[in-house]
Simulated assay, not measured.
Amino acid sequence: MKGLVLDQENASGITIKDVALPHLKPEEVKVKIKAAALNHRDEWCRQGKYPNIKNGIILGSDGAGVVEEVGEKVDKSWLGKEVIINAANFWGEDQAVQSSAFQILGMPSNGTLAEYVQVDASRLCQKPDHLSFEAAAALPLAGLTAFRAVFYHGSVKPDMKILVTGFGGGVAQFAAQYGIAAGAEVYVTSGSDEKLKTALELGVSGGFNYNDEEWVQQAVDKTDGFALIIDSAMGETFSDLIKALRPGGKLVFYGATLGNPPMLDARRVFWNQLTIQGTTMGSDRDFEGMVKYVAEQGISPVVDKVFEFSNAVEAFERMAAGKQTGKIVVKM
Rank of each mutant, 00 (worst) to 15 (best):
G3S: 10
G3F: 09
E9T: 14
I14W: 00
I14R: 08
V19F: 00
A20T: 09
K25M: 06
V29K: 07
I33Q: 03
A35E: 02
A36P: 07
A36F: 12
A37M: 09
Q47M: 15
Q47Y: 12
Y50T: 12
P51I: 02
N52L: 08
K54A: 05
I58T: 14
S61C: 13
G63C: 03
A64N: 02
S77G: 11
S77Y: 10
S77K: 08
G80E: 00
A87W: 00
A88M: 15
G92V: 13
Q103I: 12
I104W: 04
P108Q: 03
P108K: 10
L113Q: 06
Y116R: 07
L124I: 06
H130R: 12
L131R: 12
E134H: 01
A136S: 13
A142Y: 00
L144V: 09
F147A: 03
V150D: 07
V156W: 05
V156D: 06
M160W: 08
Y178M: 02
G179Y: 01
G179A: 07
G179Q: 10
A184W: 08
E185W: 03
E185K: 10
T189Q: 13
S190E: 08
S192L: 01
L196N: 11
G206Y: 14
N209M: 03
N211M: 02
D212M: 02
E213F: 01
Q218I: 03
D221F: 02
D224Q: 14
A227C: 06
G235K: 00
F238K: 13
D240W: 01
D240K: 08
A244T: 02
L264R: 04
R267K: 13
T275V: 01
I276D: 09
D286H: 08
G289M: 00
Y293K: 09
G298P: 11
K305N: 15
F307E: 07
F307N: 06
F309A: 13
F309V: 14
S310T: 01
F316H: 10
A320E: 02
K323A: 10
G326R: 07
